[in-house]
């Protein structure tokens, strides 16, 4: 890929590009899922969050979420941390899903 057209220069502020933004978006999305399941009766919310992530998140996104948790999980809802840690333990520390 060559240089981006000039109009993008002004558009891609520091918070709009690269991994940081991608992480920010994963954290926000995971926290939203936790916020819903926190309100649901019957069973621990972390299990429901883990199941939802398994069903709807592409493995690469789940792997990245695990990395975020491993590096301290800053900004993540504790339910998410619990959900992701449980999956990581079950998988023996391996990343979820099939290799990409």
């Amino acid at each position: 890929m060559g240089a981006l057209p000039a109009m993008h220069a002004g558009l891609r502020g520091p918070d709009r590009a690269g991994r940081d933004m991608s992480d920010e978006s994963l954290i926000r999305m995971a926290n939203q899922i936790a916020a819903f399941f926190r309100t649901q009766p019957g069973g621990p919310p972390s299990e429901k969050v883990a199941a939802h992530l398994d069903d709807f998140w592409e493995p690469g996104m789940r792997r990245r979420l695990q990395e975020i948790v491993r590096s301290g999980g800053a900004g993540l809802d504790e339910i998410v941390v619990e959900a992701v840690s449980a999956r990581a333990d079950a998988a023996g520390g391996n990343s979820p899903g099939r290799p990409g």
């Binding site: 592409e58 899903g97 099939r98």
Partner: peptide, 9 residues
């Protein structure tokens, strides 16, 4: 067997 990426993803 794993879900893929959605448009925003």
């Amino acid at each position: 067997p794993e879900p893929g990426l959605r448009i925003p993803n």
